[in-house]
C-alpha cells in the first residue's frame, strides 16, 4: 500500500519535473531563434529533413483521404439527392479537421520521431557535450533550427494535404461518379469561409506544429543517453504528440467553431 503510494508520488514528481524542464527548454529554444538570423543555412538544412522528406507521405495520404471522402460522401449524399454538395463536404472536413489533424499525426510519426532519435543519439554519442565544450550552445545550434523548421513546415504540409485532398475528392466525385464539375467548386466556394474555415485551419496547424516539434526536441534532449533510452524517447514522442494533437484539436474546435 505504502509502496504503491510511493510509486504514484515518484511518478507524479517525475512528471512535474519533466514538465518544468520542458518549459525551460522551449523558452531557451525560442530565445535561441534570434541567433539563427545570421545563419539561415541551418534552418534551410532542417526544412529539408523535416519538411521535404515528409512531403511524399503527406501528399499521398492527402490524395487518398480525399478520394475516400469523395466516395463515402457521395454514397451518403446521393440518398438525399444532395450529391452536388460533395465539394462542400470534402472541403470542409479537410480544411477544418482532417488536414491539420491527420497531417500533425503523420508529421509526428515521420518527422517528430526522426528529430527525437537524431537529437537523442547526438546526446548519447556525446556530440552535444562536445559542442558545449567547444563553447557552442547546442540549444541554439541544434534545437532552435529544428524547432523553427518544424513550426514552418507543419502549416505548409497541412495546406498541401487539404489541397491535394480536395483534388482527390474531385477526382472520385466528378471524374468517376459523375457529380457536376461546376457544382463541386461553386457549392464549395459558397460554403467554405476564408476566415471561419481556412484561417482557423491554418491556426490549428500552427499550434500542432509548435506542440509536436516541441515534444520531439524535448524528448530527444531529455533522453537517457543509451540506445534503449533513445528508443523509448522516440516512442514517447509519437504517443505524446498524437495525444496532444487530438486533445488540443478538441479544445481549439470548441473555441473556434462555437
Amino acid at each position: 500500500m505504502l509502496n504503491q503510494l510511493q510509486i504514484i508520488g515518484h511518478k507524479s514528481l517525475n512528471f512535474f519535473q519533466r514538465l518544468g524542464r520542458g518549459h525551460i527548454l522551449i523558452f531557451d529554444v525560442l530565445k535561441g531563434i534570434a541567433s539563427l538570423l545570421p545563419r539561415p543555412r541551418l534552418v534551410v538544412q532542417q526544412l529539408y529533413s523535416v519538411g521535404v522528406l515528409s512531403l511524399i507521405i503527406i501528399v499521398v495520404s492527402g490524395f487518398f483521404v480525399g478520394m475516400v471522402m469523395g466516395l463515402q460522401g457521395y454514397n451518403t449524399l446521393v440518398d438525399f439527392g444532395a450529391e452536388e454538395s460533395l465539394g462542400v463536404m470534402v472541403a470542409l472536413s479537410l480544411v477544418r479537421e482532417l488536414g491539420p489533424v491527420v497531417t500533425a499525426l503523420l508529421f509526428a510519426g515521420r518527422a517528430g520521431s526522426a528529430l527525437t532519435a537524431e537529437i537523442g543519439l547526438m546526446k548519447a554519442t556525446e556530440q552535444l557535450s562536445a559542442m558545449e565544450m567547444m563553447a557552442v550552445d547546442p540549444i541554439r545550434r541544434v534545437l532552435s533550427p529544428r524547432f523553427v523548421a518544424g513550426f514552418i513546415s507543419m502549416p505548409l504540409l497541412a495546406a498541401m494535404f487539404s489541397a491535394v485532398g480536395v483534388l482527390g475528392g474531385f477526382f472520385v466525385g466528378v471524374g468517376l461518379l459523375g457529380v457536376d464539375d461546376g457544382a463541386y467548386w461553386s457549392q464549395m466556394q459558397a460554403s467554405v469561409d476564408i476566415y471561419d474555415d481556412i484561417y482557423n485551419g491554418v491556426i490549428k496547424s500552427l499550434v500542432f506544429g509548435f506542440v509536436v516539434t516541441w515534444i520531439a526536441i524535448f524528448e530527444g534532449y531529455d533522453a537517457i543517453p543509451t540506445s534503449e533510452g533513445v528508443s523509448r524517447a522516440t516512442t514517447r514522442t509519437v504517443v505524446h504528440s498524437s495525444l496532444a494533437v487530438l486533445g488540443l484539436d478538441f479544445i481549439l474546435t470548441a473555441l473556434m467553431f462555437n
Binding site: 534551410v44 526544412l47 529539408y48 519538411g51 521535404v52 512531403l55 472541403a91 480544411v95 514552418i152 513546415s153 502549416p155 505548409l156 504540409l157 495546406a159 498541401m160 487539404s162 489541397a163 491535394v164 480536395v166 467548386w185 464549395m188 466556394q189 459558397a190 460554403s191 467554405v192 469561409d193 476564408i194 474555415d197 481556412i198 491554418v202
Partner: peptide, 23 residues
C-alpha cells in the same frame, strides 16, 4: 528542394483561399 517545398506550400494555401473558399 526546400525552395520547391515552400513554394508548393504557399501555392496550396493560395489554392485553398482562392479556389476552395469564398475569398
Amino acid at each position: 528542394w526546400v525552395g520547391l517545398f515552400v513554394a508548393g506550400g504557399i501555392a496550396a494555401l493560395f489554392m485553398l483561399a482562392m479556389k476552395v473558399s469564398n475569398l
